[in-house]
Design a protein around this nucleic acid. Structure first.
Lengths: 228, 228
DNA sequence: AAATCCCATATTGTCGACATTTTTATTAAA
DNA sequence: TTTAATAAAAATGTCGACAATATGGGATTT
């Protein structure tokens, strides 16, 4: 999961960008709240200039929205926008699986098997389900995208989309209960990749994400009906 | 084509961002060349701070690459990277066509017909082929994506991907000679959308972009063999 | 002659201050 | 009491200056 950039000199905005991102993910900066430049500059002990550059990068990966003369707010997405992202994920990750089937290395294949085993153990021991519902699932998808050896796809998904999904799932307080079914779907995807069947890998991945989206739609529908 | 943001106050970085983008597209800032902050600040008569913010936005849409303490250069892509982008386009625009088939309005459908007519006339009169090879084709794709009514998809494709493709085709000096065949493919796509057949619309759009990619691959192969 | 080191120069990184715009608080009028 | 106008406060936009880093040239050494 760790995408450490080795040897790259990190500037103040680099560090700030990471810190702010974590603050958002951990809820210390609330969804929808405003990022006050004077306040954050004091808190992180940096100049407003450096802070503004870090905020610019948050804006680039769509985690915040900035309006001229009005300041910056953490994105607050509605249901429709979350669904939009799932549609994009479906097409993008489908393509990733297709390309992974052609380009994956033996080492990357072993890594996928390891993740699958880990997932299976968690299910059998009926413990720690939470892991694969959150980070573990992301690790799996991350590995597939990496195995596609399409760097553009990788950046799009891993730098932007996954983070948005993570934030929204957090925002809506969603925890998937699909661990067992998701495991089966993951196996299907890996099987297709092992057989170098790109067409099938894409099909299975799209089905997997579509199921995940439908699950989300159900939860969102539940929520609104409960509130209403 | 014009995506004018009405009523939005434009700051200096806003204007600079547009100016620099145009300068890159028109070749006044060469592909691969360095963006000197002092020089550009003098030329555009702005402070380096405002300039740096504009550069940050160029970086966000991947038109330039910035390295700490080393400065910023206009992206210079190799063949593999251009092909990577076409793969992403294929999956993303396929999804756009699929969703457009479900969500397109009558007005948007009329607009598509207008573009198709325009394209057909150009072919019959055997003039102005250049138009549809470049801007016209982009207009068509732009309209489809808009008709998907998936705003996230729209931003991804129209703010980032199309611009990159445009720049690379310029960088490699490519001009498609597929006007007639592309017209037929466009018609197939619009037919499927009219029938509200999302599955087929996606299939046709993907075939269209795949053909375009294969055409690009051919040109790139030609080029390298000529040079070698 | 080639390679290495060192210094002068230029460029990027960072900061504090001022200008402009928005927001809040206050006051006056209906 | 509510609304409108206005003034004070705070936030964002913009800038120029200084600090840190990289580049290029020349002297020195092998």
């Amino acid at each position: 999961m760790a995408a450490v950039q080795d040897g790259v000199v990190t500037s103040i905005p680099d560090r700030l960008f990471l810190d702010l991102k974590n603050a958002i993910f951990e809820g210390r900066i609330a969804v929808g709240s405003k990022l006050s430049e004077p306040e954050l500059a004091r808190e992180y002990e940096v100049s407003r200039g450096a802070l503004r550059e870090a905020i610019g990068r948050l804006e680039a990966c769509r985690l915040v929205i900035r309006k001229n003369n009005l300041g910056t707010r953490v994105v607050s997405l509605n249901h429709e926008q979350l669904i939009e992202i799932y549609h994009v994920r479906e097409s993008l990750e489908g393509m990733a699986a297709r390309q992974a089937a052609l380009a994956i290395t033996d080492e990357e294949l072993r890594e996928l098997d390891r993740l699958l085993d880990h997932h299976a153990n968690d299910i059998e021991e009926e413990i720690n389900h939470a892991y694969f519902q959150e980070e573990g699932d992301l690790d799996f998808h991350y590995s597939i995208v990496k195995a596609s050896h399409n760097n553009f796809l990788f950046e799009l998904l891993c730098n932007d989309l996954y983070q948005l999904v993570r934030l929204y799932r957090y925002q809506f307080g969603m925890r998937s209960k699909r661990a067992v079914r998701a495991y089966d779907e993951h196996c299907n995807i890996v099987d297709a990749i092992k057989r170098r069947d790109g067409e099938m890998a894409e099909h299975m991945m799209r089905a997997h994400i579509r199921a995940s989206r439908e699950n989300v739609e159900l939860m969102l529908a539940d929520r609104t009906s409960n509130i209403a």
